[in-house]
Design a protein around this nucleic acid. Structure first.
Lengths: 204, 204
DNA sequence: CGCATAGTTGACTACGCTCAACCCTGGTGG
DNA sequence: CCACCAGGGTTGAGCGTAGTCAACTATGCG
């Protein structure tokens, strides 16, 4: 049972979910809208946009397939931010009341949901930790090590452009590029296009 | 019913929880230890430390009373990081199996737990968003606005030293100090010690 | 009264950002 | 098949700002 793959859900929940296709720039919901559902990304790439009281906006990327969007909706009346598709995307819609009811009555589902939340917390912490590493090349290296660890490989293949990785890391594409060439020059990684191989995981 | 205040818990859960006092520098658990419990901070201040494969360490502050620690333990076999008390601290211990059982059988408790997790995700996202604001004074201002919004006040009183705030914001104390004096000089805030008042929430 | 710690201020440095030019690749159309 | 174009990636030069180090002040506690 898994909220990321609806076909595994129990029938009473499976038939209340809807899919929605979004075109580039189309918004899934606006900041302040009534919180009616939470979502899971099926395909595409979206971003979260928050408008602050002084009118500026802060954005936050939502990239990965299977990522939850607006889980806060379940425990809040309105959305505290807007979500906008960056490219054509497809999401699963879980309407608030039905999913809350299902979570209450189906402990297995609730457990899966909790595990997803916990995982997300872990991911966010990692990302925040990375930001505390000032030196770009070290931050990138730590990121690569983390990715390698996840996939249990020493070679990482990116499924999206480096400039997207850069914003995830809080760097500009230029700085990321320089950091990678530096790591390569120092013999810590080798790379071909979007493939990067870590050389010696043990050494400093 | 609330995991942050044990007296509100049902008896079957209340009598399995334990409290633990930690002295400064004492560790709650080590990275790689078997995940036996998750925790909630009652008093004090702790930090999370992760040792990377190349021996360096990355830390992460855990400050607030009521904050959960190691919720990942519930869905993982080992702790992926260590937690160490920075000052004398006291935590509630929720042993893994009993709490998992309670969450399965008590949907109200599960809902409270999910709400806590969702809230934590929200907090982490906000913190991550703040890091994307490069200019120190703007980052600080955004942080102050966010704090003010939470407490629905225009005056913020800090319960911990500014240098702790600084690390939360990813700044050095010196830079935070300069940012605050700048905001004050520009008439955006006024302050006395650890009290800060936002002047005009509307203007840029 | 003195000590420890927090906070402030100053001078200098370093590193990431910005802007700009250029290369390379892949896709499209004549 | 080549010409063109668009986007990603790389490289370079210069700048700005946060970090670092150090000295000093303020505050609170024994």
């Amino acid at each position: 049972m898994n909220l990321q793959s609806p076909e595994s859900l129990p029938p009473e929940l499976r038939h209340v979910i809807i899919h929605r296709e979004l075109e580039p720039k189309e918004s899934l919901f606006q900041q302040g809208d009534e919180a009616k559902a939470f979502y899971v990304v099926e395909t595409g790439r979206l971003k979260l946009v928050r408008y602050t009281s002084d009118g500026k906006e802060v954005t936050f990327p939502i990239a990965r397939r299977g990522e939850m969007i607006a889980e806060i909706a379940l425990f809040s009346d309105t959305y505290p931010y807007a979500v906008i598709a960056e490219v054509a995307s497809r999401v699963i819609i879980y309407p608030k009341q039905p999913i809350l009811t299902a979570l209450r009555h189906n402990s297995e589902l609730a457990e899966d949901f909790m595990a997803m939340l916990v995982q997300k917390i872990h991911d966010l912490k990692i990302r925040l930790e990375l930001r505390d590493i000032r030196a770009a090349h070290e931050r990138v290296l730590r990121y690569l090590q983390y990715m390698a660890q996840l996939s249990e490989q020493t070679t990482i293949t990116f499924d999206r452009p480096l400039k997207d990785i850069a914003v995830d890391l809080g760097l500009t594409p230029e700085t990321l590029s320089r950091a990678l060439t530096r790591l390569e020059r120092e013999g810590i990684i080798t790379r071909t296009r979007l493939q990067i191989k870590l050389q010696n995981l043990s050494a400093a």
